[in-house]
């Protein structure tokens, strides 16, 4: 006897809750990277190894929330908003799925682990991804309490306590109120 095959279409979904969490997180992270570049010499040094000018973005594949950060011709690092469309990007790092991005930004999966599990997609010159990944790690160490930062990065840098704390205050201040 022939089987009856029931057919139904399922289309794309707009995920409001996850985006509502990730969008401000990425906004904050993007601005914090710019702030860290102005505050911390190690972060600055990583930016110095990148070409000038240079724009990179971290976002969710294919067109989810994102952050765009640019090092201008004057060498200053600025946050350039949350849209990748229409921006000339040298290095695009995309997390392969919204859910995975959510795992990473709720610190349940570290950046290194996400890379090891091939959850990120890198487009552009891969050599530039390395300083960028280090910048993101250091920014996270500044932003997050030690217990949480430990989940996000491989090794917490051995900074003097005053460096962490003063840096942290300055970065938070600049991130929230501009600079």
């Amino acid at each position: 006897m022939a089987t009856r095959w029931e057919y139904r279409d399922h289309g794309p979904i707009r995920e409001i809750l996850r985006c509502a969490y990730l969008t401000p997180m990425l906004w904050f992270m993007g601005r914090a990277v710019a702030a860290a570049a102005a505050v911390d010499t190690d972060v600055r040094r990583e930016f110095d190894t990148l070409p000038t000018p240079f724009t990179f973005a971290l976002g969710v594949w294919p067109a989810g929330p994102a952050m765009v950060v640019a090092k201008g011709a004057d060498g200053r690092v600025r946050y350039r908003g949350g849209r990748t469309a229409g921006v000339d990007i040298d290095l695009l790092m995309q997390i392969k799925h919204l859910e995975t991005a959510f795992q990473m930004f709720t610190f349940r999966e570290s950046t290194a682990t996400a890379f090891a599990r091939n959850r990120l997609l890198v487009q552009g010159d891969v050599a530039n991804a390395v300083p960028v990944a280090r910048v993101l790690d250091m920014t996270e160490v500044y932003l997050l309490p030690r217990v949480i930062a430990r989940l996000a990065v491989k090794r917490i840098p051995r900074w003097k306590p005053w460096r962490t704390w003063i840096g942290r205050l300055r970065i938070y201040w600049r991130t929230l109120w501009g600079y």
Partner: peptide, 15 residues
């Protein structure tokens, strides 16, 4: 849901 979140569609044939 997983495919939809990434902007893909699917056709579901159940039998």
């Amino acid at each position: 849901r997983v495919l939809g979140q990434a902007g893909l569609s699917l056709g579901d044939a159940a039998g």
